[in-house]
Design a binder for these strands. Structure first.
Length: 577
RNA sequence: GCGCCCUUAGCUCAGUUGGAUAGAGCAACGGUUUUCUAAACCGUGGGUCGGAGGUUCGAAUCCUUCAGGGCGCGCCA
């Protein structure tokens, strides 16, 4: 039950009636009418801007109009206690306590679906995220985008959409050749005691390649490792397999599991790239031309040449983009266009790509191609996750791949744990750079919002434990004839905002609103809990070691929402801390 | 030079398709524990929402412009 939608609908119905009787003029669209919880000082439960929204077209002052509308609204609704007008024209509604009793009954009886928007049309989504090169372990930089993508998918799933989580494997191109060569040199190191070359900057120096090499040597006894050329194809496949398995293991430690892995190499070998280029050619989105040296670089070394270009400038990009390299191989962009054609062919309603900040410049290009392939339907949404600034010993920690001093995802999980990593990475809008203070996150202190929320759940679990009741099973109550106090209604009001939180998360693809919401809910709960210190009536367990049904239900409702939210963001809710 | 993101309290940030006197946490100061978990709570101080214009009943939110910070601008992926 979404009480805001409920009241907006009620109000709209009233407006339509009034307009039929000629008492009110309505604009074409009523989208601007909203309902929300007013600031606490107004001492009411729900407020609407409807009078301000309609005042101009009706040539009446907003307060006068509010007065008229307020009377009609109240007359139609038995659950309203008082209704008042506030400048500059808000209508504030205060419910009778029975409204909140009905509310809690509804959310307890429908606990599995509380928060789900039942009026909205459900869609079929593809979320592509991580897609890191399978040439080594994931590091902290990948982590934020990985969690963002996972949770966007989760929240869409929670809201009853269909979602596929997908990983695009870049197993084609020069990087892959360099990677395979690096593995080969590590194999020679093992088999022929030759030192790994240190003077070649194209090679991957990481120690993890020693493991890859050892695994390949151990499981492929029949391979002849003397010559690279003879086994390069096989070795590439084996190396990529090693890389991808390591990444899957990394993701698994974050509780991230993709539904589908798509190989770039396969797209190329199945001629999907050729086909998509033909399609673009037919539709005149491709031509042979020259591109200029990139800005800000020494252009004396730049050799202009005639090459196949995609007209991304038609769609607002700064320049047209190369599809084919001088050796005839496809560029990364070309196969990515084919990949996106492949996505479009699978008939999703919406494609979502999660990208790191360093790839933001790529968005225009790839969305241009999707527009070209789908007649500009704007099906692709790209979300960028901004940089994570690592802080160690109160100083920014600079990672450098070449120096080998980068923090892997494994290090992170081992030190910080999955829950803290997920919660902290999600706690901020993805548009904003994130400070990730190692020492702070490790510390199990009150500074850490994760524990603050978990603690709320643990306190509720503790009450249930004392009463020898099971927090995880449903509670059946015969009569909901409770009367909640203002403190309790305050928390119920917060619970009533949960469906709104989910709606906004889904429509704006901004999952950081969930940790923010849970923190606010936990805060209200902790305040309420502490009231019990001075006032025994505010304690959940009474002197006879019993709990009243209203309090039991109250706790259950809060714990349901906390658990539901924590499930979406993939963070555990321990019952004891 | 161009593109994207950011600029809100000393610090880190929330702020719902434009709404009411702009909110949290940290830091500072003072208080709360014989009672359901003090990983908690209560109180005090702290603001030109980067600057300037504009749009309107109303702007932190939308538009224009300027300044500052970050990321990117390839026949790498």
């Amino acid at each position: 039950m979404n009480i805001f939608d409920l009241y907006i609908d009620k109000i709209k119905k009233i407006l339509l009636d009034l307009s039929k009787n000629g008492k009110l003029i309505l604009p074409d669209r009523l989208d601007g009418i909203n309902a929300e919880i007013p600031p606490i000082k107004f001492n009411s439960d729900i407020s609407t801007n409807v009078a301000m929204f309609l005042s101009k077209i009706n040539k009446k002052s907003a307060t006068d109009l509010a007065q008229i509308l307020a009377e009609v609204i109240k007359k139609n609704d038995k659950s309203i206690d008082t209704i008042s007008i506030a400048k500059p024209g808000f209508i504030n509604i205060k419910f009778k306590p029975i409204f909140w009793t009905n509310f809690i009954e509804d959310i307890i009886k429908n606990s599995k679906t509380f928060g789900v928007n039942k009026n909205e049309k459900k869609k079929n989504y593809l979320v592509e995220f991580v897609s890191a090169n399978p040439t080594g372990p994931l590091h902290v930089g990948h982590c934020r985008g990985a969690i963002l993508g996972d949770v966007i998918a989760n929240v869409l799933l929670f809201n009853k959409n269909k979602v596929i989580k997908e990983y695009y494997v870049n197993d084609y191109g020069t990087q892959v050749i360099n990677f395979t060569k690096s593995v080969y040199f590590r194999i020679r190191e093992i088999k022929f005691k030759e030192p790994f070359p240190t003077d070649n900057e194209d090679l991957y120096p990481g120690d993890y390649l020693i493991n890859f090499a050892q695994n390949i040597v151990n499981t492929n006894k029949k391979l002849d490792f003397k010559s690279f050329e003879n086994i390069s194809e096989e070795l590439t496949a084996l190396s990529i397999h090693e890389g991808l398995e390591l990444i899957k293991k990394n993701l698994n430690s974050l509780d991230i599991n993709h539904d589908n892995f798509v190989s770039e190499k396969k797209l190329v070998f199945n001629q999907e790239v050729d086909k998509v280029i033909d399609f673009l050619k037919k539709n005149k989105f491709v031509y042979k031309g020259k591109i200029k040296a990139p800005a800000g670089e020494d252009d004396t070394k730049w050799i202009e040449r005639e090459q196949l270009l995609f007209k991304s400038t038609d769609f607002g990009d700064d320049k047209d983009r190369a599809l084919q390299k001088s050796d005839g191989a496809w560029t990364y962009f070309a196969s990515d266009v084919a990949y996106h054609k492949n996505k479009l062919d699978r008939k999703f309603d919406c494609l979502i790509n999660i990208l790191g900040a360093d790839h933001a410049g790529y968005i225009k290009r790839i969305s241009s191609s999707v527009d070209a392939l789908s007649n500009s339907k704007g099906k692709l949404i790209c979300k960028v996750s901004q940089l994570v600034k690592l802080i160690k010993d109160k100083k920014p920690f600079k990672m450098s791949k070449r120096k080998g001093n980068y923090i892997t995802l494994d290090d992170l999980i081992n030190q910080v744990g999955k829950d803290a990593t997920r919660f902290i990475m999600l706690n901020r809008s993805s548009d904003v750079e994130l400070d990730f203070d190692f020492d702070n996150v490790i510390e199990k202190s009150k500074d850490n919002p994760l524990y603050y929320v978990q603690y709320c759940y643990a306190r509720i679990a503790s009450v249930f434990r004392h009463l020898e009741k099971d927090l995880n099973s449903d509670i059946k109550i015969n009569k909901y004839d409770f009367y909640y106090s203002e403190d309790e209604i305050n928390i119920l009001k917060k619970l009533s905002e949960w469906p709104k939180c989910i709606d906004v998360c889904c429509s704006k693809l901004e999952p950081h609103r969930i940790p923010t919401y849970l923190y606010e809910l936990a805060s209200l709960f902790h305040s309420y809990w502490n009231l019990g210190k001075d006032n025994p009536n505010k304690r959940f367990i009474n002197e006879q070691k019993k709990i009243t049904d209203d309090k039991l239900i109250f706790l259950k409702a809060i714990s349901n929402v906390i658990k539901s939210g924590m499930n979406i963001i993939g963070v555990s809710t321990p019952e004891k801390m």
